[in-house]
Design a protein around this nucleic acid. Structure first.
Length: 378
RNA sequence: GGACGGGUGGGUGAGUGGCUAAAACCAGCAGACUGUAAAUCUGCCGCUCCUUGCGGGCUACGAAGGUUCGAAUCCUUCCCCGUCCA
């Protein structure tokens, strides 16, 4: 096994820097993982991602299972080879689709029965199947299938989601370990996912139950789905307090630029979010001074770069006026340039966070980020 | 010169007596987006006033008159535009 995780430094808040070693490279943590659901980070080429310094990206079990199909990807040499991405990949299990495609699915203890959003065909996604698909894809880190629910949630619903998530995690773990036993050179890690909505005791229960299954890493799921940021932090904090210090913690689906440091301060090592890529396609640019909604008429003749302090190749070359024009004209280059900038911005925030931790400057960094983003769109 | 068809808000274009400041789409303006069914979605989009209300006033469907309680819608004349005929 080529996997390991080592914490390098921990500050007074509990924030840590570390190195997560995978068969596809070593990752310095805390790390932000751009989301590439359908085996592509929308609007970015793999070359661009490398240039940007992305260390690990996400892909999605549910989406790749439906199209092009995990067996095809297996046949073509696995996901890394298929998409020509030499660095690490983490695959989400489809648990989030349980939540976001709620109209198209039916939950049972066996798994989730889905109607494909593509052609309406019926499929069963079980914990075993989700593991199997991810083994076929050959991602570096596979997530167990979980039940992600809406917030705010009724307590009984949250309880049953925790119960089911644990039961599914057990089955996924067994399936995965069986596979690992048969294939000695298994090159994949599997993470468990803590649920529990906004109930601190349920979060703790969920975490403890997963600890028994001895995952090499743990994720906190079902957060940042509508609850206040303080609640997200409170829940994440409840969980990280219980997790083993020597294993990576992954907070799923977060967050806004000014929130990233807060999660790191809670002991989170990994994060992913569609925000930088999606917002970019919708003409929302993140800068050191806050958000820039570049479609705005106020930028029509603005000769400045998106962010004067940014070191990305887009800011080095193009003006706001040009970006604004591209979006106004519906030119896809606008989305491409905006995505490049936003992903650079997110990765740069994480770099700054990693550099701030050894000097005890994380809290200061967080305060400044919140101040800059407090005002709303510029 | 004649015969048809047509002129509607920034644009395209519905509407053929009251529910019409006028559908829809586009453009324009503003905003949202957190393990991606998202190059998506939402709101505003004649002017104006205020006690901001499914409020009041004004202007508006080529122009001017007329019929009617009421007209973008019906009638008359005129002006434009298109197609065809001479």
């Amino acid at each position: 096994m080529n996997f390991s995780f080592a914490v390098l430094q921990t500050d007074s808040t509990g924030a840590r820097t570390g190195i997560l070693t995978t068969p596809h490279g070593a990752i310095t943590t805390p790390v932000f993982m751009p989301v590439g659901t359908a085996a592509t980070v929308k609007c970015l080429t793999q070359s661009a991602l490398e240039e940007l310094g992305a260390q690990i990206i996400l892909a999605n079990t549910y989406h790749l299972y439906l199209r092009p199909g995990h067996e095809l990807i297996r046949k073509l040499g696995g996901l890394h080879q298929f998409m020509s991405w030499p660095r690490a990949i983490l695959t989400d299990s489809g648990g989030y689709q349980v939540f976001s495609l709620s109209a198209l699915r039916k939950m049972t203890d066996e798994g989730v029965r889905f109607r494909s959003h593509l052609d309406g065909s019926e499929h069963l996604l079980s914990p075993e199947m989700a593991a199997e698909i991810q083994l076929a894809l050959g991602s570096d880190i596979a997530m167990v299938l979980d039940e992600c629910i809406e917030t705010p949630a009724q307590r009984e619903l949250a309880e049953s989601a925790v119960k089911r998530t644990t039961a599914w995690a057990r089955r996924a773990r067994e399936y995965f370990l069986q596979y690992a036993k048969r294939h000695e050179n298994s090159r994949q890690w599997q993470f468990g996912i803590v649920q529990g909505a906004t109930f601190a005791d349920l979060r703790r229960d969920s975490a403890r139950q997963l600890l028994d299954l001895d995952f090499p890493g743990y994720a906190v799921g079902g957060l940042a789905v509508g609850e206040p940021h303080a609640t997200t932090c409170e829940m994440a904090g409840e969980v990280t307090a219980l997790l083993p210090k020597d294993r990576p913690r992954y907070l799923m689906g977060v967050g806004r630029p000014e929130q990233l440091a807060d999660y790191v301060a809670l002991g989170i090592d990994m994060m992913d979010c569609v925000l930088p890529t999606r917002a970019a396609r919708h003409a929302c640019l993140y800068t050191s001074e806050g958000r820039v909604l570049i479609k705005g008429a106020r930028y029509a003749s603005d000769q400045r770069p998106i962010d004067p302090t940014c070191t990305c190749s887009v800011c080095a070359r193009y003006t706001r006026a040009y970006l604004r024009h591209l979006f106004a004209a519906g030119e896809i280059t606008g989305a491409i340039l905006a995505t490049h900038h936003n992903v650079h911005f997110y990765l740069d925030i994480m770099r700054q966070i990693r550099e701030a931790i050894p000097f005890g400057k994380l809290a200061k960094f967080s305060t400044e980020m919140h101040a800059r983003y407090a005002a709303g769109p510029a």
